[in-house]
């Protein structure tokens, strides 16, 4: 979201006075709050920044800006392993499970990711384990056709765990490199649906461990994103975050709190509705966009 004031101006005002002015610090806070970073992470960040500015006796706005950037980059974790485990191993395909609340971009992400993997010359297979939403399997299959990979689907209203199981089985038989399993959107406070998701994973694991569980978070999501991440991580051990819809005006600042609390890295970002609109997450670029007006 666009803030009322620009960070640059806030910092200039802050430094043009002898006394570090409360209002100026509040403006810095506002920039972070407007990006959905959240109250607590924001207050902690600004507190640390104030201390460092005091200790270092920093004068120039650029220096303070750099310090803030540094703090934020440290929070989104530049050292985390963001690679995707999508290589065939132990004589079977890598298995990727894609999960999240309703409408965040799971199915689209599966399609885009398949495109990336196909470009790496991998044999990919899609599993349509969303048997619930209207035309969900059709949507995934359209993506499969678009990027040239097959889709395994089951009967509408069928058991998602068995579709996922069949998809991985088909992938093993076809000696595929990767099986991408799309699941139905579900809100994390629905115990029954979360149990169902846990079951999908356990049933797939009869073939061997799942290599990646990607939680798809919508960049427009506010503070509820942290709750989503907590609960999904508990139920299916999330290994990576995909932050979608970053092509809009939302900054996706909630992933700062997510990374800080759960230590699960953001691995990919969604930048549009097209097949090529998926990119690796870059902490520096993400933070720059967060601080930009």
């Amino acid at each position: 979201a666009r803030s009322q004031t620009s960070l640059g101006r806030g910092l200039l005002a802050l430094l043009s006075r002898d006394h570090l002015d409360e209002d100026a610090w509040e403006e810095v806070e506002d920039v972070l709050l407007s990006a959905d970073v959240g109250v607590r992470p924001t207050q902690e960040l600004v507190e640390r920044l104030r201390t460092r500015v005091q200790v270092l006796g920093t004068r120039s706005p650029q220096e303070v800006r750099d310090l803030l950037r540094e703090e934020l980059v440290a929070l989104v974790g530049p050292d985390l392993d963001r690679s995707l485990r999508t290589a065939r191993h132990d004589g079977r395909p890598a298995v990727v499970l894609v999960v999240g609340v309703n409408g965040t971009g799971k199915t689209t992400t599966v399609g885009k990711l398949a495109r990336v993997l196909v470009a790496e010359d991998k044999d990919v297979l899609l599993g349509a384990a969303d048997t619930f939403r209207a035309a969900a399997a059709d949507q995934l299959q359209t993506w499969g056709e678009r990027v040239g990979v097959p889709t395994v689907r089951g009967p509408e209203g069928g058991d998602p765990a068995s579709v996922a199981f069949e998809a991985v089985k088909a992938g093993i038989e076809a000696e595929a490199d990767v099986v991408l399993v799309d699941t139905a959107g579900r809100l994390q406070n629905k115990a029954g649906l979360m149990d169902e998701l846990g079951k999908v994973k356990r049933v797939v694991e009869k073939h061997g461990p799942v290599d990646e569980v990607l939680l798809v978070l919508d960049a427009t999501t506010g503070q509820n994103g942290l709750v989503q991440a907590r609960v999904f991580a508990e139920v299916v051990e999330v290994t990576g975050i995909v932050l979608t819809k970053l092509d809009g005006t939302a900054k996706g600042g909630i992933v700062v709190a997510v990374q800080r609390e759960l230590g699960v890295p953001v691995k990919l970002v969604g930048l549009g509705e097209g097949a090529d609109d998926l990119a690796p997450f870059e902490p520096g670029a993400f933070v720059d966009a967060l601080l930009a007006d």
């Binding site: 979201a1 666009r2 990006a35 409408g103 919508d218 999501t221 994103g225 005006t249």
Partner: peptide, 15 residues
């Protein structure tokens, strides 16, 4: 409008 939306709500609503 999705009830989960955060600070972007005003920017989007205005747009």
């Amino acid at each position: 409008l999705d009830a989960m939306i955060g600070q972007d709500a005003v920017v989007t609503a205005q747009a």
